[in-house]
Amino acid sequence: MSKIKHFIEQSWLLIVASFLFGLLIAVTNAAWSPRIERNKVEKLNHLMRGLLEEAERFEPAGELEITSSKGRKAGSSLFKAVSGSGECVGWVFNAQGPGFADKIELVIAVDKDFEKIAGFDCLASNETPGFGDKIKEQYYRNQFVGAPAGELVLVKAGDSERIDSEIVAISGATVSSEAVVRIINNSMTQIRRQMREKGLIGNGE
């Protein structure tokens, strides 16, 4: 009995404080969590709207899975882009893969038949400033807009204005450019297959 008494004497402050602090965190969280959720949705919507301008809203269309070339599995959320008149104008999904220093996370948009890429944007990346982080810049990203959603090829030199399956690498940042192309190629084929299995797009034949 005296042991319990000793225990309580020593630690009552800790117990009371834990309780009070827990309450404090719970109240703050309850007050702000709706706003935090809204921020997340808004950020994604903002990015997606930048890629598919004619889209009015984005409807969640299921969770898919992408296996990287190394066999690592990662989830991917698929969104259906719907225009003001209710027509499907494209699909958006996220994909990730290793970059130069850290993971690169992309949002990729394609047209409604999954034939052409409508663009990509970076959700998260930690590439070298001044070199690798140029993958976020418009001139590199524009090469993908309208490119065929097949196997893209990275070339060291070429015409970056011409839209085709050849992507011209950023000088000084070949690894980062390559990482983006690899992530897009890898996720593209797998997402397309899974969407066909679900009957979301035609078979293409």
Binding site: L24, I25, T28, N29, W32, S33, R35, I36, N39, K40, K43
Partner: peptide
């Protein structure tokens, strides 16, 4: 609390 505040008001 600071982290929640930043997430809510300065995402």
């Amino acid at each position: 609390i600071a982290d929640l505040f930043l997430k809510a008001f300065a995402p």
